[in-house]
Amino acid sequence: MQYDVLHEGSNAVLLVSLKQGEKLRAESGAMVAKSPKLHIRGKMWGGFFGAMQRSVLGGETFFFQEISAEDGNGDVILAPSLIGDVKVISLQDGQDYYVQNGCLLAALEHVEMGTKAQKLTAGLFSGAGFFVLHLKGSGHFVISAFGAIMEVPIPAGQEYIVDNGHVVAWSGDTEYHMVKAGKTWWSSMTSGEGLACKFQGPGKVWIQTRNPRSFGAWIGQFVRARGGLLSLIG
């Protein structure tokens, strides 16, 4: 199986070349184009309960698509819904990674996926939600994000602070907790940053250069709200 990220940047897509007998799993609706010899079908990754846990708790889609080269070699192009970059991360036996809901574009080879609950403060304020995807096994997985994706290694004994809403994925050996972005609560709030995620090395964190929620809020000011239930309960 060979893969390549094309049009890196805002309009990145993933091109995967599958040899006969190989298969991959991708986010529902991610396929852009494929060779006729490749078969595509919806799959409940991890069985019914695994899919339920992922969709209900993790906010991911219930079905993933499985693209398999049953009748011969072929290529498939995958793209995320959001405007932004995609990045391939290598996963070796013994390692594990956490990925924010909706940021997993595809999993290649022997990647296993589960859902893990976050701490209450992290679930409320990190922007990653209460449940995150937990990946382990061996192979590669592909993350997608809003804007560009930056890989930040955090050496042993060091810390790194990421604004909430920008975290995409992180390695299992690192952990984070919520802190105020500034020195004091006043400076945190007046700077417009509020809370941030403080990661502890060793490990890596992948961050997106744009915050989808901030972008949504920015767009929201130009969209006139209409009457009805939303304005009633909003």
Binding site: Y98, K116, P155, A156, G157, G172, D173, T174, E175, P202
Partner: peptide
Amino acid sequence: GGHDGDRVKLVCEKESVA
């Protein structure tokens, strides 16, 4: 450390390894 707080981290700052 780690997500579940069940990983042992042995850090050597002198050699910058863990």
